[in-house]
Every structure is written in structure tokens, then in C-alpha cells.
């Protein structure tokens, strides 16, 4: 059976029942907008992404080089000490092959699955990674431990966002 949407348990009302007025409904679209202050750590991180660089913060007590950067070390409970540029290469810590979109709607026939992965960044401390997506790779070829490299947007298209990196692709040979 081809599911329109991935759903767990229960039997939901069909959209058609609502559209055709078979059930009593009220509809109101929420207008909820937020503009989060990034603060110095994430603010600098995003500004550096716009320049095509990845920056981390170092805690001189536990010696961790942390990414995404933070102004305080949550384990040592002290301010972090230095900015450190790290590489735009890394290692796949874990990944998943997703046949549904972000809203759990099923990808269309012929579309490629989404490939989210946690990538431990070279130059940051072991276990320090960022969540991103993989590209230029067949799903069945992805392996944990695979070396990958960032593929960036063109400089003029970057806007200071995590999506300034389009995806990470395997480093070959």
C-alpha cells in the first residue's frame, strides 16, 4: 500500500472528509513568528559560514574544540577561551536514509531520498559534529566512518546560514 503520509497508529480523518464538509470544522491559520537573537557564538559561526569557513570555540580546561561554537563550556561550567577555525572536511558519525520529507509526506516516485548525517568535523574534538545532509553519493554507498567534504554555495549566494553548505560529499581517493 502506498501511503500518502507516514502515520503511526489510530485512523485519522481523511483530508477529503474535511474538504467536503462531512465533519464540522473550524480553521484558523496560526501566525507565530520568532526572530531569535543568536548571541556572539552562533552569530560568529553563521557570519563565518558566509565567508566559507567553519569556526569553533575552544575550552582551555577540558581542551575541547566545540562546534557549533558556544560562549561557555557546558561541562566545565566556565566561559570558553578562543576561536578556532576548523576544516570543512569530516567523518560520518551516523546517517539515515529518509524516504519521507521533513513534514513526513512521502517523497515522490523517482526522487532521491534525503540523507541526513552527523559529521564529525576535522579539527574539532572527537564526537563534535554538525547535522547536515550528504550529496553526490548513492545511498547504498554511504558508510559510517566515511570521509566527506563540504560543498559550498557560491560566495554571492551565501547568506550566513547553515545552508550555505549545500551538502557534504564523499572525499574520493
Amino acid at each position: 500500500m502506498e501511503l500518502e503520509k507516514f502515520e503511526l497508529g489510530a485512523t485519522p480523518l481523511k483530508d477529503s472528509a474535511i474538504k467536503e464538509g462531512k465533519v464540522l470544522t473550524v480553521a484558523k491559520k496560526p501566525n507565530l513568528k520568532y526572530a531569535w537573537d543568536n548571541g556572539p557564538a552562533i552569530g560568529r559561526y553563521l557570519a563565518e559560514l558566509k565567508e566559507g569557513r567553519i569556526i569553533a570555540r575552544k575550552c582551555n580546561k577540558c581542551r575541547r574544540i566545540m562546534i557549533p561554537p558556544r560562549m561557555f563550556c557546558e561541562l566545565c561550567w566556565r566561559p570558553t577561551d578562543e576561536w578556532v577555525y576548523v576544516e570543512d572536511t569530516g567523518t560520518v558519525n551516523t546517517f539515515s536514509i529518509c524516504y519521507v520529507n521533513w513534514d513526513a509526506s512521502r517523497i515522490k516516485k523517482g526522487e532521491k531520498p534525503h540523507l541526513p548525517a552527523v559529521i564529525e568535523i576535522d579539527g574539532a574534538s572527537p564526537g563534535m559534529g554538525i547535522l547536515h545532509v550528504l550529496g553526490e553519493v548513492e545511498p547504498e554507498k554511504i558508510k559510517i566512518g566515511m570521509k566527506v567534504r563540504a560543498v559550498w554555495k557560491k560566495p554571492e549566494e551565501r547568506e550566513g546560514s547553515i545552508t550555505d553548505i549545500l551538502y557534504f560529499k564523499p572525499v574520493r581517493g
Binding site: W36, D37, G39, P40, F72
Partner: peptide, 26 residues
């Protein structure tokens, strides 16, 4: 407004002061 701090740094500022006063660590 508090554009210089994220919500994380706002709470951190208050927490550091509170722990300092009580002479404790997390």
C-alpha cells in the same frame, strides 16, 4: 531588547551570578 545575547547567554549570566553568591558549582 537584548540583541547581544541569545537566551542561552542570558540564563548563563544569571546562573553564574547565583552560583557565585552561594559558593557552589553545578
Amino acid at each position: 531588547v537584548s540583541p547581544g545575547s541569545s537566551y542561552r547567554e542570558l540564563t548563563y549570566e544569571a546562573a553564574v551570578k547565583a552560583y557565585q553568591e552561594a559558593g557552589i558549582e553545578p
